[in-house]
Design a protein around this nucleic acid. Sequence first.
DNA 1: CATGAATGAGGGTTCATTCAT
DNA 2: AATGAATGAACCCTCATTCAT
Lengths: 217, 217, 217, 217
Amino acid sequence: MGAVKTKRMPRAVREQQMLDAAVRTFGQRGYMAASMDEIAELAGVSKPLVYLYLNSKEDLFTACIRREAAALTEAVRAGVDPGLPTDRQLWEGLRAFFTHTARNPDGWSILHLQARTHGEPFAAEVAAMRAEIVAFVTQLIVAAAREAHHDPDLAESEVAGLAEALVGAAESLAAWANATPGVTARQAAATLMNFAWSGLGNLMDGRPWTPPDALTR
Amino acid sequence: MGAVKTKRMPRAVREQQMLDAAVRTFGQRGYMAASMDEIAELAGVSKPLVYLYLNSKEDLFTACIRREAAALTEAVRAGVDPGLPTDRQLWEGLRAFFTHTARNPDGWSILHLQARTHGEPFAAEVAAMRAEIVAFVTQLIVAAAREAHHDPDLAESEVAGLAEALVGAAESLAAWANATPGVTARQAAATLMNFAWSGLGNLMDGRPWTPPDALTR
Amino acid sequence: MGAVKTKRMPRAVREQQMLDAAVRTFGQRGYMAASMDEIAELAGVSKPLVYLYLNSKEDLFTACIRREAAALTEAVRAGVDPGLPTDRQLWEGLRAFFTHTARNPDGWSILHLQARTHGEPFAAEVAAMRAEIVAFVTQLIVAAAREAHHDPDLAESEVAGLAEALVGAAESLAAWANATPGVTARQAAATLMNFAWSGLGNLMDGRPWTPPDALTR
Amino acid sequence: MGAVKTKRMPRAVREQQMLDAAVRTFGQRGYMAASMDEIAELAGVSKPLVYLYLNSKEDLFTACIRREAAALTEAVRAGVDPGLPTDRQLWEGLRAFFTHTARNPDGWSILHLQARTHGEPFAAEVAAMRAEIVAFVTQLIVAAAREAHHDPDLAESEVAGLAEALVGAAESLAAWANATPGVTARQAAATLMNFAWSGLGNLMDGRPWTPPDALTR
DNA sequence: CATGAATGAGGGTTCATTCAT
DNA sequence: AATGAATGAACCCTCATTCAT
């Protein structure tokens, strides 16, 4: 199970191996239950080397959070074309999000569960990333309102709640999709678009939101 | 802060004191960081008594989860009048949910964060409760579809995803409402109803969902 | 070598056993080289019990210092009759000091070497005891000067230096006497009285200080 | 603060840099708390080089002790003119001693505290130096006795004790003088000469020992 | 001459858990 | 019904020391 024990690697490489092992261990065992011993073994190095490079369990976990947060936000950013209409942008972002979380369950566990459960300084780290995503969604909603130029009264606090609800729904669906066999990232994104864009009321009335490439795939 | 040290209490009473202390400690410190020492002290009893009554840390935590899960589902059930139309039922349920979680932050922390973060057997315990709530929501959605008798093809898996999204959004909003000063349970429920029932698309077009008692309060 | 493993002792007794073991271990191995494992084993208990009662290695060492310092100052105080003339008081005090340090080499090692070598907060602890002894000696010197009513100019800073020198000489002689076979506490005290009271110059001229009970013993 | 990192120095120079760093680190942190890492960094070299040149922490510390012991004895020797009368020789020796220890607090800490606190083989190393100084003092006392040709019976063991007391007092005063602002090496030496040569009894009677150059300075 | 990479061994500390009363 | 006394096991972390280049 452990990495092949290759000796004398340059520091940068070893550090990535350690982070890989740490993300996996933290993601599966949880922050507190993960032991530095296990991480070191999985990384194929001795414990002192982990401390030499990453300083402490806390620092190591923080490094994991940062790496995974950066990877996730980057994946979403890369998946979105800012030239598209807002609903299309949201659709693309959700697809990228569900795809990335499905491919990195351990990283997602760290961001979604572990970091939030174990207080400061970890919660702040992940809150920063979350704020970035919420801001992106907020801006999409505001843009949509402007496009529709119908409801100039949409209060800021109201928008904040909506963005929070949307992001929360996405987070929950990610866990659900990961745990439910047969649910693809695409399906999860479609479900959420339907739910978020059209609302249950309209769905009931037979007016779902339609994926833009429904015909081609 | 700890309970007054009264001696020779009947078992049932002592057990509740212990669970109170445990919920508070687990909720604030987290499952792993909470120590049996602290719980026993907060409960005002000696450690062996905790073991005599509740067996182990794991069992104690499981008992906490069960108690809090039962309290939450009961609160929601009690808040809903099954004779009302579906959207009204959902509205009442959400209000009850946000009210209960705001009043029991430690219990909510246990259910929402701690139990899910620390794997089996706790995750299964809380998953059972969640399934109950998802089932309730699912049934609401199905009933709504029947009322609208428009879309008999609404696939079961699709409904499951929608329910999941709705519940996830609610969970996230609960944490957000607890952490954001000035957001009441009522407001959180209204935001979520808007989002879930009308959808962003309709909101943008000026067709929000209207709280049933908007005029009276 | 370790104490007989007696079970279920009252806390006060166990604590003294632990302090005994700790004084011996710290005295012989030194503060840093002593391991809590070794101390626990010598005390005949498990390590967690040592921590339960004494908190930490630092606290344990501090407790040792306090106990040994109290024992030493008490021994000196008990040996001195404040009604006697000053040189007699000094003589009795020195005898008590050398006797006590000879009988408690580990305690003396802790006070004289270990506590001073390992910085704060230990140095302050032993400095307090030393200040007490220096104050006692200073007061003797001042009293002697008053009795001789010859030198009203004896500056305070000068007296401080003399007291320091006397105490330092005593400390050194204690280690020397312990390490040199055949040197008794009595002889060490006599040598120091000679040195301190008469001075080398007078010794050379055949005017030593005479122990008060030279004839009787 | 660390030495400038100059490369490719001859071995002898590098060794002195290492010893400088080691003396400083051992003197300030203590033998056990000092880490080879810190010493190497302060010396501006890599750790393996320290091992290459000085073999082990123990050997490095021993080398420090030897160097500082040699420096101290050499300073005292250089300060004394063997042609002078014995009290003048002692006076000069003490001045040299207090001056040197005041200027080399780290070295003095190593000799006086660290080496003695951490057992063999270090204690033996510093004991050798101490024996040399005690021998010097002993010879002074014997010479003084011969000059006074009064007490040919001054037993050898008695002289040994006196020398020990004198050296011990000097050691204590050195630490005291270093720690007490405003006390110069000269004053410390004068205090000790007074104490040792005239004795408290004569001081009280107004017969102090008079520094030879009291008039000129 | 010099070092980046790496580790075996051990130390302080904490915790869930049990025994004897 | 209740507790004071006690521990096995594990965890985080550090350090002196060595290879391979």
